[in-house]
Design a protein around this nucleic acid. Structure first.
Lengths: 110, 110
DNA sequence: TTTGTTGTTCGCAAAATTACGAACAATATT
DNA sequence: AATATTGTTCGTAATTTTGCGAACAACAAA
């Protein structure tokens, strides 16, 4: 069933699922919100905002990085994190197109 | 850190995370794509499209229903599923607003 | 009443996720 | 060289997720 892939849109369903999965945890969503509200910040700033162990924060950041939604940069002795803007736009587009597949007014479960 | 909640937007971060989590599995995303491409269909139709056991399909449908993205209706002896349009629109709006928090052109990790 | 159809639920196993403290690495400071 | 700062990685435990077959429920048909 390749209904997402074979549309006129360019949605990569696997990538969309990866984006969604990364966003699917409250802590990671918080981190994304936090980062999206500023240019960039250090690990410590993010860690300060969250009531969990730094090891766990680091792990969530790693997952967000692997999903492509953020990026990290060493700025010794700190690590600067920020939104990965290119992929952010891609995700924005993917989600928008995904939800638009329902936009035509169909009657549903009437 | 309530950066999503205290914006001018009306994003409910927990609900957004629930939507995202439900979409974060390839099979569930496929099901959503499939349902979004039609008015409604029966369990058997969905099951036919997927290479997994019906028990697993049923479980994924249950999760999508609990997340609010789809709805099911008994039409004896079949079960008719379809997109939950109200929540679909809500999800669409939430994701769009979420990704728009980055829309202002900020320089990021230059 | 037996049989068939359609899906859900149960019980279980395997795998993945989440969270933590401790140890570590890299670098700067004393 | 010893110490301090900043984060990552490791090892582990607890929980959740995923997937399956078998059993079941509800109903229609023979």
């Amino acid at each position: 069933m390749n209904c997402c892939e074979n549309k006129h849109t360019n949605i990569d369903a696997e990538q969309l699922a990866r984006f969604a999965k990364a966003m699917g945890h409250p802590t990671r969503l918080e981190i994304l919100c936090f980062l999206a509200s500023m240019d960039s910040c250090y690990f410590g700033d993010i860690n300060n905002e969250l009531p969990i162990a730094k090891a766990t924060v680091s792990q969530h950041l790693k997952e967000l990085k692997e999903a492509g939604l953020i990026q990290g940069e060493i700025e010794t002795p700190k690590v600067k994190y920020c939104i990965n803007r290119a992929n952010w736009e891609k995700a924005k587009t993917y989600f928008a197109e995904f939800f638009d597949t329902m936009s035509e007014t169909k009657v549903c479960c009437k």
